[in-house]
């Protein structure tokens, strides 16, 4: 637990935790608003956006990715609304048409273009490369205060930190309108709150969190963290503040336990190789949800 740990594990752990929290926070409101599958849709749609961003810009930088993903999310929202309105189709089906099509287009674009020079392939998009985000310049714990070494931190860390901060700020400052419009839309409207704008803002913030997290950890963690920690927290408590706090706790626990189990679990069991950290984090969050579904004090609906 010395220099190796700092160089190999600290950065992925921190990124995993930040990504989990950034997704779990807006996830609380998505789950309560019955929009849980928006996270699923967003994480599929991000792929074509990132591919197009890369093809247009020629490099896999932050801005092309961000702009591409945002544009793709916008296209998706327009498609879903259009199909729903003009086709008079339920939202779930409209969403299904949209995200499968855009994802298929993304995969086809990837296969047809030369992206071998960058980390851009379908597997990476699905389960990320958390394990490879190592801190090469780190020589030991002392590197944490060494400016030169800190400059060599992977850029993914900066992106997810900014995104996580943005999400926390959004939830903090928009807490009251978010909470009121989530629980009682009619009441919120009568108070003069811009209900529609709040809903859109929530989706946009979720999309930003998804894009930043997707880059570092892949789409499985994004979907799992949008839904599992908030859903588990909802089965533990009836109060929104407590639910959000629990969900953050569950997200951190999933990220840390998942990462450690994936990296060291097989070694403890006598196998040489580690397993996918992203997959393990999702699995742990599922186990937490299972425990809460069986024994959570607030698992039944209050009547």
């Amino acid at each position: 637990m010395g220099a190796d740990f700092v160089a190999l594990s600290i950065v992925p752990l921190v990124i995993g935790v930040l990504a989990a929290v950034a997704c779990a926070l807006p996830g609380n409101f998505l789950v309560l608003r019955r929009q849980a599958l928006i996270g699923d849709a967003i994480s599929h749609v991000v792929l074509p956006g990132i591919v197009v961003g890369f093809l247009v810009a020629g490099v896999a930088g932050t801005w092309p990715m961000l702009i591409g993903a945002t544009a793709a999310a916008l296209v998706a929202v327009l498609m879903i609304e259009g199909i729903q309105r003009l086709g008079r189709v339920e939202p779930g089906a409209a969403m299904g048409v949209t995200f499968t099509t855009l994802f298929a287009a993304g995969v086809l674009l990837l296969e047809q273009s030369d992206t071998s020079s960058v980390h851009l392939d379908v597997e990476h998009a699905l389960y990320g490369n958390l394990e490879s985000l190592i801190w090469i310049d780190a020589t030991g714990w002392g590197s944490l205060v060494d400016l030169q070494a800190l400059a060599g931190l992977p850029p993914e860390l900066t992106r997810i930190s900014v995104a996580a901060l943005g999400v926390v700020a959004f939830v903090w400052f928009a807490w009251r309108p978010l909470a009121v419009s989530t629980f009682d839309e009619g009441f919120a409207r009568s108070m003069g709150l811009p209900v529609r704008a709040i809903g859109i803002a929530l989706v946009v913030v979720s999309a930003l969190a998804a894009v930043a997290a997707f880059d570092a950890v892949g789409s499985i963690i994004v979907i799992a963290m949008f839904i599992c920690p908030p859903a588990a927290a909802r089965l533990v408590t009836n109060r929104l503040v407590a639910q959000v706090a629990w969900s953050v706790g569950f997200a951190v626990l999933s990220a840390v336990a998942g990462y450690v189990l994936a990296g060291y679990g097989p070694i403890w069991l006598g196998f040489g190789n580690s397993v996918s950290a992203a997959g393990m984090i999702a699995t742990v969050s599922g186990l937490i949800l299972a425990v809460c579904a069986i024994a959570g004090p607030a698992r039944h609906a209050t009547t």
């Binding site: 789950v31 929009q35 599958l37 499985i220 799992a224 839904i227 909802r234 994936a262 393990m280």
Partner: peptide
């Protein structure tokens, strides 16, 4: 539980998929 169907769908699909990826590795 009091979870709605969309949350249940999302939870099952992401967790099972995650487990599947672990098994694939």
């Amino acid at each position: 539980t009091r979870l709605t169907e969309d949350a249940a769908i999302g939870a099952v699909l992401s967790v099972f998929f995650g487990l599947g990826i672990v098994l694939l590795t």
